[in-house]
Amino acid sequence: MLSVSNITCSRGDRTLFRDLSFSVAPGDLLHLKGKNGSGKTTLLRSICGLFLQDSGEIHWNDTSIRNLGEDYFREVVYLGHHNGIKDDLTAEENLTIAAVLDGDETDEKQIRIALERIGLRGYDDLPTRVLSQGQKRRVALARLLLTKSPLWILDEPFTALDTSAIDLLQEIIREHIAADGMIIITTHQEVALTAGHAKQLELGN
């Protein structure tokens, strides 16, 4: 379980949010909302441990994420604005490396199955440079199918996706929540769940 207590973040001189507290338990989907510039991405990056908050604590199963260090990163998957894939590598190579970096054991077969489900069959041997924006995003999303990490942090995952990919991602999100996973997401899409709890958090400024 992730619990965030009284965190304050600022960029430069501007305080983005102050004394924010919430928690995410297994089966929870936390939908972060707020205007552009309200600090959604900064909050997500602090939860990942990529950004150091000004004050407050973030705990994973009652231990501060600063003390957990690398052990915490095994529990988290972060999908940010960047796809985190290499243009010169194929989708398959990208996923193999991503799986190692996520700390997951995968084999070629699992990667092929993931690529097939994400709708990239036949593209696995091409460098991702020749793929479209939406297809690159799909490669990045395929990581979600391979990982065993319970906490997913998704920053605008629906951008550049077509309707069928949006439906697919919705389905992947529902499956993860139904399997007692945790998701923190920022999106302008509505995410409908069939199991678990959906929470909302509005960041104001």
């Binding site: 990163f73 972060y78 970096l101 996520d102």
Partner: peptide, 10 residues
């Protein structure tokens, strides 16, 4: 391309 971010989270 964001792959460094993924390395930081390895």
């Amino acid at each position: 391309d964001g792959t460094l971010e993924q390395m930081l989270l390895a």
